[in-house]
Design a protein around this nucleic acid. Structure first.
Lengths: 155, 155
DNA sequence: CCTCACTTGTTGTATATACACTCATCAGCA
DNA sequence: TGCTGATGAGTGTATATACAACAAGTGAGG
């Protein structure tokens, strides 16, 4: 007979079962590895692909815009980009602002992205199969909520 | 007038909108930072807390068991544990198998976990508010599906 | 003009993560 | 008993990520 009322007591078991972070992180590790396995023959990671895609969508983009789009810290992006610049996937143009330069994909970068699309599609299908359609849809709603919260400076 | 049928063409825009990995990763970065901010005063990260919780739940655990529970690569856990051992949060007992040792929380580790619980609760509430109840529930289903897939060696 | 607060990006440092490989041990079998 | 494949953990190397501190540029008031 357990004297303490369960609703008041936070145990390791409850954290393990309920923690949003642990679930998200476990899922992300699993899904990330699916994409990375698929992309590896192209010597591309899912993180790098995300950045290529963001730059492609934004056109001539400042780093800050990419950071906002991907909810990435500026120093993280800075280092990721250093690798991608060194590999010739991305180019920088001088912007009007002396502090910034504008990012664009090089021909190499664009070609790499196109070449990797079939692998992305395979990974995408595996990920959807793994998580289920409904949960993927829920993910979309969660990201929308996140973007709305960011727009309101709640985060 | 665009000649190519849209359903056949995969563009960067479509990847940005549809990619499961980019959404999961963005969400995870946002949620992780909520927990890490809350836990920082305890000099604890959400990743470390997850490991403490897993060890606490498993009792005397081999590393492999923790890896399975958290879908973590063994080398990742090995290094995370090195820090936690150095800080005196975790202890190792010799197991029957000469290759393995059994992990337990030290008193320090257990105390740290207990002390951090209120911060975890605050972060948990913020995360649920950010994502929405329904999406959190969807997350739970997704993790269940993942564990089932792993049990069947599908991943 | 100047100064000063703000913005943008980089660097120092630390943690988190994975893959490929290695080392030690174990378990089954010849 | 001794080999041999499997298993559990650690190491080399690389990427990903964040916070704090810094450097450089911008812009608004005075």
């Amino acid at each position: 007979m357990e004297a303490k009322p369960k609703t008041m007591e936070i145990t390791a078991e409850r954290i393990a079962e309920e923690c949003v972070a642990v679930r998200l992180r476990v899922l992300t590790r699993a899904v990330t590895s699916i994409y990375n396995r698929a992309l590896r023959p192209h010597r591309l990671t899912v993180s790098q692909m995300n950045i290529l895609v963001a730059i492609s969508c934004l056109g001539e983009a400042r780093q800050q815009a990419v950071c906002r789009a991907l909810h990435l810290e500026k120093s993280s992006l800075s280092r990721d980009l250093a690798r991608m610049l060194a590999r010739g996937w991305v180019n920088t143009l001088a912007g009007e602002d002396g502090r910034t330069s504008l990012l664009t994909l090089t021909t190499t970068g664009r070609r790499l992205l196109n070449k990797a699309i079939p692998a992305w599609q395979r990974a995408q299908q595996q990920a959807i199969a793994l998580m289920g359609d409904k949960q993927v849809a829920g993910l979309n709603r969660a990201v929308k909520t996140l973007r709305a919260a960011k727009a309101k400076n709640l985060i």
